Amino acid sequence: MTSPSLQTVNSPIPAPSVSSAALVVRAFENQDAERWDRFVLEHPGGTFFHQMAWKRVVEKTFEHQAQYVYGERDGRIVAIAPVFMVSNWMVGRCLVSSPLASYGGICAEDLEAGNALLAFLKRRAQEQQVDYLELRNPAGGTLPEFVPNPRYSSFSMTLSKDPEAVLKGLPKDIRYMIRKAEKADLHVRRGPELLDEFYRLFAINMRRLGTPVFPRSLFVNLLQEFGKQIDVLVVYAGSEPVASAVSFLFRDTMHPYYIGGLPVARDLAANNFLWWELMKFAAQSGMNTFDFGRSKKGTGAYAFKKKWNPKITDLDYQFFLVMRKTAPNFSPANPKFEVATKAWSRLPLWLTKKLGPRVVRWIP
């Protein structure tokens, strides 16, 4: 059986494996930002999280140390590797591509460039004696010497430009819940000025899940750095906000990423209504793909997204172990964290909003 190669890690298009020009691996510098982003936009495997703005958001919000590198040939970027050093008492010291992101890993035009960056990252991990190097590859299989992390899947759907056609293509029970919400006279508003309403619902939802909430500054920084690539949506029952979402817009894809909501949202079918309004907006905006985002297998979020009948893709997250002997598992679903998760869900909301941003910095 042939080992997976980097030429397909972040690209659905096979690329040449050799080039006559010499390849040079360089550390990213600020003057490279424009060239880097141009490569991300032009490469079929480039994602929202490979953009320079994501680097700035992570640095400003969590102070993780960026160690970005790229491959250059004839003065042109042909491969990139966005990597951060994350170091704290909980995870130890690790290199992650990329923290907080659904997708990461190396993007390369060809096999030579991709393998050169991979070899560089492995050497750096060994020289810095980190516990592990993590690549959050969306596809491509497990690379040689890496240990797979098979816990996550992503969900996506191809959209028609006609929202009515999209609606007709949804499963019957989903359409029923959308109609139920419409009869309850739910309505939506969108815009960055709704950030505070989004965040209140987001904090409530995270506490219910027993998960530390991200700091409000994360969302402020996302809006500052990405601008119109960020969509803020709030669902109202009358004048009361009941569900909310912050979504990422990249090329022809809409990617809802952070979701908030009150417990009553389920009874009102507000969650289904929220996702439908996001999907409808994407179709009306001419986007071709709706990315439901990643979820851990066996969770309620996984089951909810599966009901929409999307394409399900197992993500090829993986670890290159250096000082650690076994792959880490910092997921809240880990049985080791069960007691802490239940305890967190019982804390007062004000306390979770105070403590959560401190705790979540430890988890990449």
Rank of each mutant, 00 (worst) to 15 (best):
205 N>I: 12
202 F>A: 01
197 E>L: 13
203 A>R: 05
164 E>L: 13
230 I>W: 08
226 F>G: 05
165 A>P: 02
192 P>D: 10
204 I>V: 15
173 D>C: 05
162 D>P: 01
195 L>D: 00
204 I>N: 02
184 A>I: 05
177 M>Y: 11
205 N>T: 15
191 G>H: 08
186 L>Y: 03
178 I>Q: 03
178 I>T: 02
165 A>L: 12
177 M>F: 12
178 I>E: 02
224 Q>V: 07
208 R>F: 04
172 K>H: 13
201 L>R: 02
222 L>C: 15
217 S>T: 14
171 P>R: 13
179 R>W: 07
184 A>P: 07
160 S>A: 13
196 D>S: 15
216 R>K: 15
181 A>Q: 11
225 E>A: 12
220 V>P: 00
202 F>D: 00
185 D>C: 06
173 D>P: 03
186 L>H: 02
192 P>E: 09
177 M>D: 14
169 G>D: 06
180 K>W: 04
172 K>L: 10
211 T>P: 01
167 L>N: 04
224 Q>G: 06
175 R>P: 02
231 D>R: 11
211 T>E: 03
210 G>A: 08
161 K>Q: 15
206 M>R: 07
228 K>Y: 02
187 H>C: 12
173 D>I: 07
175 R>D: 09
170 L>E: 10
220 V>K: 03
189 R>H: 11
218 L>H: 03
168 K>E: 11
233 L>K: 05
215 P>G: 12
181 A>N: 09
223 L>D: 06
209 L>Q: 13
234 V>K: 03
208 R>W: 03
220 V>L: 07
235 V>Y: 01
229 Q>G: 10
220 V>R: 03
228 K>R: 14
214 F>C: 01
217 S>G: 03
183 K>L: 14
189 R>I: 06
213 V>N: 00
212 P>A: 01
227 G>C: 06
179 R>V: 07
177 M>L: 13
205 N>P: 08
182 E>V: 07
207 R>I: 05
222 L>A: 09
195 L>I: 12
217 S>E: 11
225 E>F: 07
207 R>Q: 12
202 F>G: 00
161 K>G: 13
222 L>E: 08
223 L>M: 15
207 R>M: 06
180 K>V: 15
212 P>H: 00
188 V>N: 02
186 L>A: 02
171 P>K: 14
204 I>G: 02
227 G>P: 04
181 A>P: 09
235 V>P: 00
189 R>K: 15
198 F>W: 01
218 L>D: 03
161 K>T: 15
166 V>L: 14
227 G>N: 06
164 E>S: 14
234 V>T: 10
191 G>T: 11
187 H>S: 13
231 D>H: 12
164 E>N: 14
177 M>I: 09
217 S>D: 08
177 M>T: 13
160 S>D: 15
212 P>L: 00
215 P>A: 10
223 L>Y: 09
211 T>I: 14
167 L>M: 13
